[in-house]
Design a protein around this nucleic acid. Sequence first.
RNA 1: GGGUUGUUAGCUCAGUGGUAGAGCAGCUGGCUUUUAACCAGUUGGUCGCAGGUUCAAGUCCCGCACAGCCCA
Length: 503
Amino acid sequence: MLENNILQDENHIIQERREKLTKIRQQKVAYPNHFKPKNRAFDIHKQYGDKNAEELLAVNIEVTIAGRMMLKRVMGKASFATIQDGQAQIQIYISKANIDEACYEDFKHWDIGDIIGATGKLFRTKTNELTIEVKAIELISKSLRPLPEKFHGLTDQELCYRQRYLDLIMNQASKSVFLNRSKIVQSIRESMVNSGYLEVETPMMHVIPGGATAKPFVTHHNALDMPLFLRIAPELYLKRLIVGGLDRVFEINRNFRNEGLSTRHNPEFTMLEFYESYADYHSMMSITEAILRKAAIDSIGSLTFEYQGREVDLAKKFDCLGMLEAIIKYNPQYQMCDLAKPEFLISELAKLTHQKPKTDILGLLQLELFEETTETKLWNPTFIINYPIEVSPLARHADNNSEIAERFELFVVGRELANGYSELNDPEDQAMRFKKQVMQKNAGDEEAMHYDADYVRALEYGMPPTGGCGIGIDRLVMLLTNSPSIRDVIFFPHMRSEADINS
RNA sequence: GGGUUGUUAGCUCAGUGGUAGAGCAGCUGGCUUUUAACCAGUUGGUCGCAGGUUCAAGUCCCGCACAGCCCA
C-alpha cells in the first residue's frame, strides 16, 4: 500500500533520474559523505566581489564549495552552472580541457537540483561575473525530483506551504522572511536577558487549561489515564515562578488553540510572555515599546517600514487611549453615555454583525463593539487601556475603580500584537474571578476559564505586585517582514491533509 | 460558517461543446565565456474526485475535496 502511494506521483522524469542513480550506485557510493566545502558563496562574493580580472589572476585564489545546481548551460566542450549554498549563489565554469574527460561526460548528465561539490580558482568571465574555474567536481547527492521551472519558480501558494523545503530552495524572498524571523526572536531574547530576565520553560501539557480564554486541544495520558490539555497560554505557570521568587522570567514558546484557521490564526503559534515583580502595566508598555523597536532595528534595520503598501512608524512614542475613548475617537457617531448602556450596545452590535450578541454583560459588549468598530482602524502602534474587568479575569483592578482592569492591549496595522497587565495578586479576588468564569462556563461559554485551585493556593502564599505581558511572535514577524498571512512566517503551517499522499 | 475565484504535463500557464496545447524541465544530437544560454529533433496527460446533460464535456449542470481572497 505504502509502495503504491509512493509510486503514485512518479513520472518519467523521476524514472530517468532513478536510472541515473542506479548507474551511479554501480560505480561508487551514491550518497557519499566525505566532501568538505571550505568556502561559502556569500563569503566569496563578500571577499572577492570587488576584485577585477587582473587582481584575481594575480592572487590566484582556490576555493572549494558545495551546493545545489540551480542552472546549467552546456556548450559542447565547456559549460557553466550556478551553484546555490546556504546564503548565496555562485557560477562555476567547467571545461573539458581542465578536468578528466569521463568526469565531464558525467557532469553533462547531472541534473538541475543535484547537490555537487567543486574546487577551482576564482576568475572573471568576459561578462565580468565572478566564477570558479573548476579543476575537480563531484556529485554529492543525486536529486530524483525535478525542481520547479527556473524562471517562474514555485508560485503555487499551497505548494509553498505544504513543501516548504521546495519554497526555500526556489524563493529567496521566502528564505529571507525566515532569516528575519530568527533575527527577531534572537533580538527579543537579547532584550529580555539584557533586562535581567531569566528564560524558563513551563509545561506544554496542562491538567487545567488556563491563562487565556480559548478552546484547548485535548489529549490523553495513558499511564495516568487522565485527560491533558495542550496549553493555551503559559501565564499561570510563569506567575507561579514569580511566587517562587524568580522575579523576572520570560518564555518564548508555542501555544495551542483549538479554533479556526485564518490569515492571522494558526492552531499552534509562538508567544513571548514575560513577568516582572514590582512592575505594573505602565512599565510593561515601556518594555514592549523597547522590545519592538530593537526587534525592528535588529531585523530590518529601520523603525519605519511599509506593511502591505502603507507606512508604519515605530519611532514615535506609541499612542495610548482608553478603550471607550478609542471607540469614540474612531467612531464619532457614538457618545460616551451610550457606551455604558447594555441595551444600546446590544442594538448597535446587532446592526453591525446581523446577529444578537451572545452576552448581556456590559464589559463584554463594550469589548465586542471595540472589536467591531475600532480595532482595524488602529494602524500605527496604539496601546488601548482601561479594559472592563469582566474580560480580564487575571488582571488587577484599578485602585479607584473596581470595574476597570489595569490592562493594555497593543494594536498595530489593525491587529492585536500584545496584551499585558498589572497582575492580580489578591488571592481572594482571584478566587472570586475564577468562580465567575466557572459560572460563565456552566452557562455555555466554552472559552471561559476553569477554577485553578493550585494557582489560587500559590497566590495565597503571597505574590509580589507584578507586571506581565504577552507578545505574539508570529504577528510581529508578519509586521516586520511585510507578510500578509501567518502562514508566510511559520515554516510548516497547519494545512488540511493532502487527499492522495498519506491516505 | 457564508460568499467568491481557482485546480489542465514535474513547474509556469493557454485552451470558443467537436483529435489535449506552449514555454521551461527531461531525452537525443550540435556548440570552448554562458547568464532564464542558444539551435534541431523528441518523450511525457486519470484535464482535482464523483455523478449528470449531450451524438459529443477540460469546456455546461450538481455534489465533494483542497487551496487563495473577502466577510463573519
